[in-house]
Design a protein around this nucleic acid. Sequence first.
DNA 1: GCAAGGTC
Length: 841
Amino acid sequence: MPTVLMVAEKPMLADSIAKLLSDGRATKRKGWNGACSVSEYTASFLNYSSARFKVTSTCGHVMSIDFPPKYNNWERVDPVELFSAPTTKVEATAKLRMNDYLASEAKGCDYLVLWLDCDKEGENICFEVIDAVQSSMVKPHSGNYMDNVYRAHFSAITEKDIKAAMRTLGRPNENESLSVDARQELDLRIGCSFTRFQTRFFQGKYGDLDSTLISFGPCQTPTLGFCVTRHDEIVQFKPEPYWVIQVRLKATEETELKPEWSRGRMFDREVCQMFLDRIKMHKEAVVVEVTKKESQKQRPLALNTVELMRVASSGLGIGPATAMQLAEQLYTRGYISYPRTETTSYSANFDLRGTLQQQAGSSKWGATVKEVLAEGITKPRQGDDKGDHPPITPMRADDGQLSGDLARIYEYIVQHFIGTVMKPCRYWVTTLHMTIGDEQFSASGKALIDEGFTKVMPWLGIGDDEQLPELRRGDRLAVKDLRIVERQTSPPDYLTEAELITLMEKHGIGTDASIPVHINNISQRNYVTVESGRKLVPTKLGVALVHGYLKVDPQLVLPTMRSEVETQLTLIAKGEADFLAVKNHALENFRLKFIYFVENITFVDALFEDSFTTLADAGKPFAKCGKCRRFMKLVQSRPQRLHCSSCQDTYALPNAKDGLLKLHMEKKCPLDDFDLLYWQGPGGKLSRSYAFCPYCYNNPPFPGMKKSQGCNECTHPACPHAFSTQGVVKCPQACSEGNGVLVLDPQSAPKWRLCCNKCAVVVGVFEGATRVRVSPKQCDDCGAQLMSAEYKEGKTPLPESKTSYLGCVFCDEELGDIINLNHVNRTIDQRNRQEAALSRG
DNA sequence: GCAAGGTC
């Protein structure tokens, strides 16, 4: 009996496929990588009356593309090289060990059936799976491995579709896969080369440019472009005055009517005045016609991901990335169906009624649901079936466990679902046509006929205030007021997140899964900020960048940058163009663009100069330069650095966020006379800390030393700050990075501590001592340097209340708690646990 | 430290 391995794109799909194909008889077990599951059953296959089936999955892409490690040095590698550098494939998610996992499940299998999503990415993952399992599977008699590899083509996760796909297996499509390979390589080379170049060019050049990374990408940059384009429209907008005739009529005893003038806006006051003069003697308006026609507000289409993100942002004030995290949670907790889908149409056998019934007990909309169930469901509008997943729908009722934004997202999904099976909202639109003299005016209002779905989505409903008073042809209304009003044309508002999502979708920038990532990116990179109403306002960095591209090469920021490449890639997918030819052509095109951009960067820089202050104008005097003995300034915007304006030098500094940087007690480096500084990382008392010389930190003084090292790693044989004098003992953890040494942290009083100069180990010593020193003498037993400590009278924890101590803190058992090794042990425990987890995996 | 695309 042959064994057939079947692989889906995600665990959930593997489960569904196995369940459908085995009519629910499959047995399920957890895969050893912790993420996937394996379902097994027996059924017929090809000409075999009986075959053993194993259904499992990947978790998206198995592999990801990157440059080999030696190209990851931003200092040494010229970014233009990234257009020709080799690339390698690395596992997309290392901890899942997907290659090993798939290979182990494939052992002894005779056939492979690929059930990856039916799109280009899925086709590409097919070949990643093939690469992973090929050598583990049984070789076919023909000798050609691919003979036993099949591809299932399905357009919905329904019994009918999945079973049909199983009956009509095809082969994986290499061209489609190649088009994705090309896309990946282009994105990598283009994105990384531009990002590295512009980051290195601008970073450190300006004082208030707050960004450690100035990224560029074929999706994120056009996304930013949309926001800046709107910003430009607002800034460039010139308000123009215009005039209208405004009239107030007495409609009934209590109500007034303010109809609109048929000529609308007049951009010439004199002309407007002329019209007013012609009619101002009239004391009445005459109703000349009343039209009344029925209109409808359409129900929503079944909910997909992009629409959920839009509503979350504009209606609930929840950003797309957060909205998707919440939706993911609702899904894993069983409240809603799979939240990543493009489909806006329910399949023919979708249990609308059953889904609706689950909501009948709700205190919020139970009554409405019962009405709909009693009257009967209205057939939903016809949406688009993309064949991926069913629309997002509730799967079970709220059991009171949901709160906050999680509950709000859930409630919206329920309301939206109920809305799709209700009637449209019907209303009358009444329009009154009136004349005052020869001028025409009109007013229109809405009156509800049937609220339909707006009963459950009340914010879309028609308000009572939209009604007009009952009037008939021939009615005369007294003019209460007639005048010219001056107004101004107004600029558009900043782009909302919801509008941005729509623009991205329209131009094919990103996918439903990646749209929130791109929006997050441009905000985290400090290109835009999210303001009230989730409006996206570009920062001056965002504006300067986009204007720079527009000046040098507008294509770099236009939405067509992506779509034009996509068009080319589709030719590969269809087999109409050669993979290498298209890829190389696009690469060469962007390589030339890159070179041109580099050559013309001064044009971009000119815009930066207008927006940002130079280093010399920024920052505050901080520490003295060893060369000129003048104060260097500390520039605090990220990445923080020191700048000497007289020497025109800039020195990089330790750059973790929230760390503490200060002068090191007015001490100087004996090598270069620079003021020494002291750095404590963001973890407070548990993080590494050390003294360092800003010059040596950037220009390692001795062979074997690297950049970014402090005095605690300096090999100076005699300097009082170097580890040769301040080091106490080899790190007890034998840290992986090499020969770690515990070095006295010179500014740690009163919680004195030793920090390993290689790893995260921290040892507390002599807490409360007024003075702690490392002695030049060594312990005869263990070889550690002796340490001395001094305490104030009455405040000493030392044995026999002594106030001073000299000895080996590691051998002297009398010291007890005065030496605190807790953190060492904790670090070692952590490491052991990690290693154990890895070897188990 | 970099892209965009899958999904956990």
